[in-house]
Computed example of a mutant assay.
Amino acid sequence: MEFDFTWVLLGFPIAFTLGWLASRLDLRQLRIENRQAPKAYFKGLNFLLNEQQDQAIDAFIEAVQNDPDTSELHFALGNLFRRRGEYERAVRVHEHLMSRGDLTQPERDRAQHALALDFLKAGLLDRAEAALRRLEGTPFEEEARLALLSIYERSRDWGNATEIAARLGSSSHGSFSARQAHYLCEQAGASVAAGDTTQALSALQQAIAMAPALARPLIDLAKLQNQLGRTQDALQTLLKLEKTAPQGLLLAAGLLANIAQAGGQEATALELLKASYANVPSIDLIEAIVKLEKDPATARQWYVKHLERQASLVAAGKWIAGEKLQDEQHHALVQRALDQATKPLMRYRCAACGFEATQHFWHCPGCQAWDSYPTRRIEEL
Results as ranks from 00 to 15, higher is better:
N46G: 11
L292T: 03
L135G: 00
A190I: 04
D284S: 11
W158F: 09
G189Y: 04
S99I: 03
L132M: 04
C185T: 01
T70W: 08
C353Y: 00
D58L: 10
G229T: 04
S177E: 10
R89S: 15
A122C: 02
L115C: 03
K291Y: 04
A144Q: 01
D4C: 13
S372D: 00
G195D: 08
L10N: 01
Q340D: 07
L238G: 02
L228E: 06
P374F: 05
L313Q: 15
D102N: 05
A190Q: 07
A316T: 05
F16V: 14
R133L: 12
S172I: 00
C367M: 00
K305S: 14
I378G: 06
G366C: 00
Y183C: 10
E293A: 14
D284A: 08
N46L: 14
S191W: 01
A90T: 13
A22W: 11
A90H: 07
K121F: 05
C350P: 02
N79Q: 14
A222T: 15
L80A: 15
A131S: 03
Q335H: 06
E293T: 02
N258D: 14
L115R: 10
A211I: 10
A15I: 01
K291P: 15
R179F: 03
P38S: 12
L125Q: 03
L146G: 12
R24D: 12
Q232K: 06
K324G: 15
E163T: 12
I283C: 02
L117M: 08
E153T: 04
G195P: 07
K318S: 13
G195A: 01
L307E: 05
A131N: 02
L292N: 00
A122G: 03
E308Q: 08
T70F: 15
Y152E: 01
A357W: 00
E88A: 10
A147L: 05
D371L: 09
L148M: 10
L115P: 04
E95C: 05
R377C: 01
K274N: 07
L27A: 11
E136Q: 12
R84H: 14
A213N: 11
W319D: 15
T358L: 10
K343G: 06
A315E: 02
T197S: 13
D109K: 06
I320H: 07
P344N: 07
M346S: 11
G264L: 09
I14M: 01
